[in-house]
Computed example of a mutant assay.
Amino acid sequence: MKVFITGATGVLGRRLVDRLTDRDHEVVGLVRDEAGKRIVGRRGGTARRGDVLDPETLERAIDDDVEVAVHAATAIPDSTKPSDEEWARNDRVRFEGARNLLDATPDGLRQVLFPSVVWVARQPDGSRFDETADRHPDRATRSAADVEDFLQERAAGDGFDATVLRCGFFYAPDARDTRAWGERLLDGDLPVVGGGLLGRQDAELSFVHADDAAAAFVAAIETEAGGTYHVVDDEPVTGAAFFETFADLLEAPEPGRIPAWLARFFVGKVNSEGFTSPMPTTNEKAKRELGWEPEYPTYRDGLEQVVETWRADGTLAELRDESTAETTTSLRGEAA
């Protein structure tokens, strides 16, 4: 099939281009610059310049014979304490981008896929949930819920299958957050954020390795699936266990703790609640209907792959060197 991907240079998009072209699908990836063009080209795709917030560029980028569209573009804030303006930018890329994409796609489009997030449906009482649960969007997930609704509405009128794959927290060797977590763990500067007065209450979270998320999208495309699926690994895990395991594999100091009420002053409400509000869910529907199985069924399997990859490609040595340099600089400053 011919597949058009927005966000083709992101942690998910890169993997989609790789996997789809490996399976003989024709892939066109939307990019914003020459660096993005090279990323898509090296993975076997065809790059087209454009911006999801610029409808004219989308119309030029999308061919008349596109059968499947994946809206993977985001602008998730990378600052320590994101402002509302940063979240608003992400909202625009998600929702306006989805609307512009569908307005530019040709008649005959068969399927539109959107990577939403499982925590859009986390339950107020912290209980386990699945795809049938009521959603409870917050500031970070409101636009994801809006796109889910928008796709269902457009699908009913335009005749394509709307496929929403709600993913757990992404992690991977090349994921921005994973590298930041590893760097801060090696520095001894990544505390576990917990609930309660002293930060001792741990919430069960759902993660997924980015390789497994991409595999689920390919499975959904090739089975022509419609509907909503939760794409997570087999085992929910507390943030404490995840980061303690990561630290152990990195041979880094064991992370300390900080209560969520205090963390809000440093990282904001959205980020502090992200790791203290439970979101245990299940991948049973995705396994059953898509024929998908995660290559890294638990966070332990996935984190071992991350650290092994970093060890092989030199990233781990680089992070350790940076950590040592920062410690040395700090000690010199204290001595002065």
Rank of each mutant, 00 (worst) to 15 (best):
R99G: 10
T276N: 07
T282L: 05
A336V: 13
L205P: 12
D177C: 00
Q201W: 08
V93Y: 15
A140V: 11
A216I: 15
D130M: 06
G108H: 10
F207H: 15
V70N: 02
R38Q: 15
T298W: 09
V270Q: 14
K285T: 11
P259G: 07
T329F: 12
E34T: 04
R19M: 12
E59C: 08
V112K: 08
P55E: 09
D33P: 01
S277D: 13
L109H: 05
A75L: 03
A213V: 13
D33Q: 04
F243Y: 08
A215M: 11
N271C: 00
E59I: 07
F169C: 00
Q305W: 08
D211F: 05
D103V: 02
Q305E: 14
W119H: 14
Y171K: 05
R320W: 10
E289A: 12
G188I: 01
G226K: 06
I62M: 04
E96K: 11
K37L: 02
L250K: 12
V31M: 12
V267L: 05
P259N: 03
G126W: 08
D54G: 01
H136Q: 07
G45E: 09
G10T: 11
T80I: 12
D233R: 08
T282Q: 05
V231F: 03
H71S: 01
P137I: 13
L186F: 10
G168K: 03
L185C: 09
V120C: 06
A317F: 02
E67C: 09
N283H: 09
R99Q: 15
T282F: 01
R94G: 01
V68D: 09
E295F: 00
K287L: 03
V11R: 15
Y299S: 08
L331Y: 07
D134G: 07
L165D: 11
T178K: 08
D130K: 12
G157F: 06
D313Y: 06
F150H: 15
E293T: 13
A336G: 11
S330N: 11
